[in-house]
Design a protein around this nucleic acid. Structure first.
Lengths: 339, 339
DNA sequence: AATGGCATAGACAACGTTGTCGTATCGTGG
DNA sequence: CCACGATACGACAACGTTGTCTATGCCATT
């Protein structure tokens, strides 16, 4: 419906279309008076450049793709989209989402097809896609630039955005300690999961720094799913000397711990403090609310998208490794208290 | 990197580019031999039409927009995306998501800008966006065609896809009845929410049909949030003659009921059956698993997207009201048992 | 054998923008 | 006062596809 074209603007401003184009793209070589006149006109007529024509001519699509897997955490993907969208809007880009694990879509060829047809200017990759060598290979074969959110390895391979999981887990552990807890249990994540490993190390370090000897049985295995939290919690609470606080490596498992506690008739936080990691929707809606580490997911995705878009201007971008670190913070809710 | 163009195909096939274009778009006027030759070549060279050129020329963008609000239910939006994406992929369209309630984005102008710049061929609207008169007005002003998923009113306004909430609630209630429950409590949703109303009516009808007198105190107010489920559950279980089964109008509230039961030391499903509605991720991961109504969200979005794309060929589409109904089913998990 | 009609195919001009190159105009230093 | 470089702008040809119109070949009909 926006049937105003660059030609209309040019005619009314009494300049050539090229000049209008220069104004739109903030190129130099336009006098201040002319620039102002054109800008006013654009504003007044509500002109929007035609994306198709633009990309046909410039070989840029103004489309950035967000690639992800639909694994368990809906809210993760949701937050990523929110953040990426914010950055896209600001820069006049559009965001297309690409999912790689939909049943019926062959992983490799499906994505490849989509990427070819999509003509993205660049991609934002989130875990676990961002650590999938097969997928990275496909993307690189297409010559597409990409930025990763919270990758687990190959840090030199592309620009990325990350958060310090280890320090966060360290802080959380320290906080429990400061509340007077000494026997602090930990529920681990999947063995091959980098964040899980870093979180456990943060916990270990904090305990060690305080001279606490972490007994092996204080660390219970888990797989990030609620049921494993229930089982692990049950096991920890069944110890002869049960912990007074349990730190689960993610919120879902912390929810399981809440169930385990309620099964045993323990009140949280009266008899047991429970804390998690993620600050997903569960944390807010559980009863009591879960004390947890807030991951700035949307902000990380936003930063990644920004980096990607900024990089388009700069061809050296792909080779240069850039990394940006974002801050977590701890959200205090009802599930933790002093001993 | 797909640098093959229609010209290359035309040259190699010894035909004009127009003929190749005809083959691509399945237009008639091409002999079977020529068609086969061109198709083979396209396949062999891995040619993909350039989306920008296509849309510039044809005034179609091959982009469909999915508009939604980020309200509470991440999984709803997630499922919608999965379904819409499936349909898009099949038809060679791309999917762009537009969110209308991101802080910092003025609702009206923000969306309007995005729609103008986006040049969508059409939109898929999900609740509650699909019932927002202001938003519908903006979209219609742009002359965009759209299909709604599970709208609440104005059914004649556009094609839509829906599920029979009332019948589903009816069935669920009947199932509890057949398990031997006679005092069945119901936790209501927000007053202005059409689905909530239909679910309550399904419950009422089923009870009435069986000659049960539903006492007013069996119906507790709720707002679809877990905390309200907890409170409502508490209230119901505190009645002199408490219900033996509680039907919450959505899963989140059912989760609250589980907490309420565990607070009172009641075992589920031993002492109390609890059922929900939605079959979101909570239902699977709670303990015990929640018996609930499975809403085919992805399928509804898929159907809607299909209807939208099919409609592009047919200009009469917008005026013709089409509706498609999809089936729910009840998922039996551990939270319900016979009395 | 000429005519008309249909199926098949091609020529050419859009579509709305950017890239490349060329050309006025102007101030400045010699 | 001239040459010169910088500055500001425009003409024109891409970009890769589709839409419109026209041309050809072939068959059936007269």
């Amino acid at each position: 419906m926006s049937d105003i074209t660059i030609v209309d603007i040019a005619k009314q401003a009494g300049v050539s279309i090229k000049t209008v184009s220069r104004v739109i793209n903030r190129e130099e070589g336009v006098g201040p008076a002319t620039r102002a006149r054109v800008e006013d006109l654009i504003e007044k007529l509500g002109y929007r450049p035609n994306v198709s024509a633009r990309s046909l001519s410039s070989r840029r699509s103004y489309l950035i793709g967000v690639v992800f897997m639909r694994v368990g955490a809906y809210h993760y993907v949701g937050e990523v989209q929110v953040g990426a969208m914010r950055a896209c809007r600001r820069a006049g880009y559009h965001m297309v989402i690409e999912q790689v694990d939909d049943p019926g879509q062959a992983r490799g060829p499906g994505l490849e097809q989509a990427l070819k047809a999509g003509r993205f200017d660049g991609l934002v990759l989130t875990p676990p896609v961002c650590d999938d060598p097969e997928i990275l290979a496909i993307i690189e074969a297409q010559g597409l630039s990409y930025v990763r959110v919270a990758p687990d390895r190959d840090f030199g391979r592309s620009p990325y955005v990350f958060m310090d999981d280890q320090q966060a887990a360290h802080d959380m552990t320290a906080r429990l300690w400061d509340l007077g807890h000494r026997r602090i249990g930990f529920i681990d994540g999947p063995a091959d999961h980098g964040s899980a490993r870093r979180r456990r190390e943060g916990y270990m370090t904090a305990m060690a720094e305080r001279g606490a000897r972490v007994k092996p049985e204080w660390i219970a295995p888990g797989d990030f799913m609620p049921l494993s939290g229930l089982e692990a919690g049950d096991r920890l609470l069944g110890l002869p000397e049960p912990p007074t606080a349990i730190f689960a490596a993610n919120d879902s498992m912390a929810m399981g711990v809440l169930s385990a506690a309620s099964k045993r008739g323990l009140s949280v936080p009266g008899d047991l403090s429970v804390v998690g990691f993620d600050d997903g929707p569960l944390a807010e809606s559980s009863w009591p609310g879960l004390t947890t580490v807030h991951q700035p997911i949307a902000e990380m995705a936003e930063a990644a998208t920004e980096m990607l878009i900024e990089g388009f201007g700069d061809p050296r971008f792909r080779s240069r490794t850039a990394a940006r670190q974002l801050d977590y913070h701890i959200v205090e809710r009802g599930s933790s208290a002093s001993r």
